[in-house]
């Protein structure tokens, strides 16, 4: 039993150490990632270059296209690169590499080439880093066939999923939440990986099902806690893999309660929730007791000021309100 509490950052760092020790073909590329340059701006890669050498853990020039481009090239030549793009917003600079190359090379080569690449990105409101530092772009990536999009909701989940991405043969966008970096949870079991494409039931309930991922899992759990006082029990499904998402687990969980809320921090309009909500309606229309509700951020950039930023991020009250709507 893991007794120690660790932060998400420590869990990520441990996962990277474990993976690199296990497989020599794993390389780490990114800005500031090697130890002479502080082992990552948040310290996620700290210690790796000291342990595995600077030929495997490389601080790069500030060139997102080349970071992803070179990682793609090395992946096709037999390596298993983990590229760090410091902030999810900066992945936009490398979109050609991600969308036109990483996602499509297997397809366009008729299955001859694989791109076993993990792109670690950080994002998330909470620190007043504003619209060019804390956007949630998972729907863009989920919309692109050929990519996998993955995010964890606790330190142990994050570590297990990150390792699964690293050892997966397809390109994975691994989303890390900045405020969650310093949140603590149970330490991951050594050697544990969590299979991609499998959701987990984070909390069992029988009245309403909340489908969510990443930092919103804790928010949904808090909402469930509030409603438990009223004898309303809420099932919380943590997607873990946003694309390809686990339809069976989600549809079973919704069929059980007949009510669903889909929640994420990303902008609600055209978001991941829209797809999940649609599929629930398509597949379970007869069994639904109320229309599926969606919770997400308003249609604007992530604001800078603390007050506005707090109003932007969906909190437990918003999730509770959405749940109540399904109960009317």
């Amino acid at each position: 039993m893991a007794q120690n509490k660790v932060t998400t950052l420590q869990a990520i760092n441990t996962a990277l150490h474990e993976a690199m020790a296990q497989d020599d073909s794993i390389l780490v590329f990114g800005e500031d990632v090697a130890d002479p340059e502080e082992g990552g701006v948040n310290g996620a890669t700290r210690g790796l270059s000291t342990e595995f050498g600077e030929s495997r853990v490389r601080s790069t020039p500030i060139s997102e296209q080349a970071i992803i481009g070179a990682a793609i090239g090395s992946a096709m030549a037999g390596m298993r690169p983990v590229a760090e793009i410091m902030l999810m917003n900066f992945s936009t600079v490398a979109m050609d590499m991600i969308v036109n190359h990483a996602a499509k090379l297997r397809y366009m080569s008729g299955g001859q080439t694989a791109v076993p690449l993990t792109i670690r990105v950080t994002t998330g409101a909470g620190f007043g880093t504003a619209g060019q530092h804390s956007d949630y772009l998972e729907a863009w990536f989920a919309h692109t066939a050929g990519l996998k999009v993955v995010t964890g909701s606790t330190p142990a989940e994050t570590a297990g999923l990150l390792k699964a991405c690293i050892f997966d043969d397809d390109p994975c966008i691994f989303i890390e939440n900045l405020p969650a970096y310093w949140q603590k949870g149970e330490a991951p079991e050594p050697g544990q990986t969590i299979p991609l494409g499998k959701a987990r039931i984070a909390r069992e309930g029988s009245d309403v099902t909340v489908v969510t991922y990443g930092p919103q899992v804790a928010v949904a759990e808090a909402a469930a806690e509030q409603l438990a006082e009223e004898k309303i029990t809420v099932e919380v499904v943590d997607l873990r893999t946003i694309q390809p998402w686990d339809r069976d687990t989600v549809l079973n969980a919704v069929a059980k309660t007949g009510r669903a809320v889909v929640s994420h921090e990303a902008v609600r309009a055209f978001g991941v929730g829209a797809e999940i909500s649609s599929v629930i309606h398509e597949e379970l229309f007869d069994q639904l007791r109320a229309p599926v509700q969606r919770v997400g951020a308003p249609s604007t950039a992530v604001p800078y000021s603390k007050a506005l930023e707090s109003a932007f991020v969906p909190d437990a009250d918003k999730v509770v309100a959405a749940i109540r709507k399904t109960l009317k």
């Binding site: 070179a70 090239g73 690169p81 190359h101």
Partner: peptide, 11 residues
């Protein structure tokens, strides 16, 4: 062009 650099790196 960046792919060729990455391949070179792997080689």
């Amino acid at each position: 062009i960046p792919h060729a650099v990455g391949i070179g790196y792997a080689l």
